[in-house]
Amino acid sequence: MRKFWTLYSKEMLESLRSYRLVWIPVVFIILGIMQPLTTYYLPDILKASGDMPPGMLEGYEMPGAAAVMAQALGQYGTIGMLVLALAAMNSLAGERSSGSAELLMVKPIAPAVIIFAKWAAHLTVLFIALGLGAAAAGYYTVQLMGSLSVSDCLAAAGLYSLWLLSAVSLTLLFSAFMRGPAAAFLALLSAAGMSLLYSLLPSDFDWLPAALPDLSAGQLTEGSVAWFGPVLSAVLLILACIAGASMLMGRNKLPD
């Protein structure tokens, strides 16, 4: 356990030195407040951007607070996930190619502990980023649109964080045996593949982690959702990723 904390604080120091701990939360806050702002000022933005046929704005109806909050969280599924995967891609691949993985592996530390410390560090960055981002989005939505239920927002952000964490864990797994950019690409591709399966056949694949963004939106707009299947499969996927990465790390494949 002490080894874990030592490695974990080393990882957190690393994410501070690489500015990850700062720039990812700032990006998440910007994404979070941009959505309510652009939704609220959309008519003005359209007017300012020039030739609008008269009467076009008459049909524009301001969406409700819950819908805007759901859209704001939806931003994290695209740019947010890309940012997290790109930031996590070198965590194992970089250490393998720079040689610090070998230095670490000769110490009497189980590979699982190394992987788990790295994963926990990424989890911390994700929680800080999503927590601050969702709080900022919620504040702006309440200021501009109307009231929101705090518990629904927390549940929705929690469901969304699980989906993002699945993508980060996949990146970590692929990064254990591939070069960084390839790992991020493959992780995003598998996340996109799951989303595609879910959107094509929602009734067959509603247990996939890819259903989590929809659940998160449903939590906000409807108030209660059947979360058990996707949450279970996401947790299993994340555990499988950590276990797989530990095994691959234990075999210590040399960098290419």
């Binding site: 720039w23 700032v26 806050i29 910007i30 407040i33 702002l37 000022y41 008519p43 003005d44 702006y140």
Partner: peptide, 27 residues
């Protein structure tokens, strides 16, 4: 909606500037 609420917009500008400054610093 006639009056733009700058109190809500300047944080966005400030955060973008902060991000660029951190980037320049690290660069």
């Amino acid at each position: 909606m006639d009056k733009v609420n700058w109190g809500l917009i300047w944080p966005l500008v400030a955060l973008q500037a902060l991000l660029a400054i951190i980037g320049l610093f690290s660069l």
